[in-house]
Simulated assay, not measured.
Amino acid sequence: MSEAPHEAPIKTPGQLIAAIIASFAVPIVIIVLLVIYVDNSTRTGAGTDSLSEAEVNARIKPFAQVDIRDANAPRVYKTGEEVYKAVCSACHATGAAGAPKFTNTADWAPRISQGFDTLWHTALAGKGAMPPRGGTSPDDYSDFEIARAVVYMANNAGASFPEPAQPAAGAAAAASGAAAAVQAGASDAGAAQAAAAMAAMASVPQAAAPAAGGTQSADASQAGKALYQQVCQACHAAGVLNAPKFGDKEAWAGRLKDPIDTVYNYALHGKGAMPPKGGSTASDADVKAAVDYMVSAAK
């Protein structure tokens, strides 16, 4: 049997040239089509989102924000948990900067043993890396709300502090906060004294401050005695909130080691649980006269 003859597909020089051209052209066409397909969707380069409407609005919005509040509206106090989450958790959630970690009984045990009053004053005044009031202001969170946060954190770490008593409506903020602290951490007798002090300080007559250049009271001694009876005795008569008791020479001795101007400064601007001017709006001269009246009774 004879085999069928084999014929090459390219028989002429023209067919050879066409095949060579096709072998180059077809891949090039395929590559171009693939590039067009891949690049068909619109894409933005890096940084072009900075011109979007949202980004532009974010850059040109004002830095300051006006928060309008009704001064006559009743104060709605935040819970201890709310204050903790908004302020304290920044450090206490992880124990950053040496802060006692939330729910860690080992961290909190030595603090709890110092008592609520010490913890509360530490939170208000600051300690170590912790700024006063956790970096907030009294306009942001009242002393009472700070006290709630302290109780919330301590009780979640093994303490059994009672919830601070809510300040009475109309009471001075500082006086109410101090009374709430004592109610939370003191004995029943101390809490009763603090409640009496709070009631007395809340009822202090809020007379208008004298105009600039006004004359001092004609009888400074009588003015000092009157202010003591109206305001200062709420705490100093019985030694409430660690106030030096009226006429107690030993209690006053430590205070009188400082210059009298320092004692005046404490009375005018507050110290510890004592609010500035005892929560009153008395003149500086009358406050100093009240200090002189108490000091003279302790000599």
Rank of each mutant, 00 (worst) to 15 (best):
A64K: 09
S2E: 13
G213R: 02
S89A: 14
A106T: 10
V295L: 00
I10W: 09
E7H: 10
I68N: 06
A223I: 02
P259G: 04
A234Q: 05
T12V: 10
T122E: 13
T48N: 09
A58S: 11
A202M: 06
K101I: 01
A226E: 10
I36D: 11
G214T: 15
L119R: 05
A173N: 01
N72C: 06
V182D: 08
A191T: 03
M201P: 02
V240S: 14
P131F: 03
A212S: 11
P27D: 09
A191S: 10
M274T: 11
A184H: 06
A179F: 05
T262P: 01
A211H: 00
F24N: 07
V231P: 02
Q222A: 13
Y293E: 00
S142N: 04
A172G: 15
G115A: 01
R75W: 02
V263K: 01
V35D: 15
M130K: 03
G214H: 09
E82M: 07
D286K: 00
H6I: 15
Y293N: 04
A19R: 11
A99W: 03
A46W: 14
T122L: 14
P9S: 10
F116H: 07
D286F: 06
D292C: 01
T42S: 15
A195V: 00
A154M: 01
S160Q: 06
P276Q: 07
L16S: 11
A209R: 07
D286C: 01
D39P: 00
Q216G: 09
A129R: 07
L34R: 12
D219Y: 02
E82A: 14
D248L: 11
E81Q: 13
K277P: 06
L33R: 14
A165W: 00
K127C: 02
A196M: 09
V87E: 08
G134F: 06
A267T: 08
V29A: 15
P110K: 04
R148M: 14
